[in-house]
């Protein structure tokens, strides 16, 4: 697989793990991965927002167990550290949706340096998602 595009909407700690793990897996093999963070998930592209991610709902009480499992699996426990690990592959680009950024308080001042920038969804969907070999939505 040469390229993959992923749109991430879910922002709870446990739910964001899967797309990040898939991106890490494929990027380690040289696949170009482009990720667009929309809705609340856009806050994961800020240091404060990434650190604030928690497990929601009926699994909230099991967060410590999940974090322990993530560490045992060999992944960094903190989401920002996972993002940094993905970036270090040289094959992953992180984009913040401009609508989500405007609504949820993300701007070029608080965006993490690992992110490519704030982009319009039309550009991402046409220039990245539509051209990718594989497209996923979380």
């Amino acid at each position: 697989m040469k390229s993959m595009a992923i749109v991430i909407r879910d922002d709870s700690y446990d739910k964001i793990l899967t797309p990040l793990a898939f991106a890490y897996l494929t990027a380690s093999e040289g696949t170009q991965v482009d990720m667009l963070f929309v809705n609340w998930a856009v806050k994961a592209l800020t240091a404060e927002g990434a650190a604030a991610l928690r497990i929601d709902g009926r699994h909230a009480a099991e967060e410590a167990m999940v974090r322990e499992g993530v560490a045992k699996a060999g992944l960094p426990v903190e989401i920002y550290d996972i993002i940094k690990a993905l970036k270090s592959t040289g094959c992953v680009n992180f984009y913040a949706c401009s609508l989500a950024a405007a609504i949820f308080g993300v701007n070029e001042g608080n965006l993490i340096p690992e992110a490519e920038g704030i982009v319009g969804a039309a550009w991402f969907l046409n220039d990245k998602a539509a051209k990718a070999e594989h497209y996923q939505y979380f």
């Binding site: 793990a21 890490y24 897996l25 093999e29 045992k72 699996a73 060999g74």
Partner: peptide, 16 residues
């Protein structure tokens, strides 16, 4: 040796 580690790490480390 990836003992104890789970997906994606065994494959990430194998690729490296």
């Amino acid at each position: 040796d990836t003992s104890g580690k789970c997906c994606p790490m065994p494959m990430v480390e194998t690729n490296k």
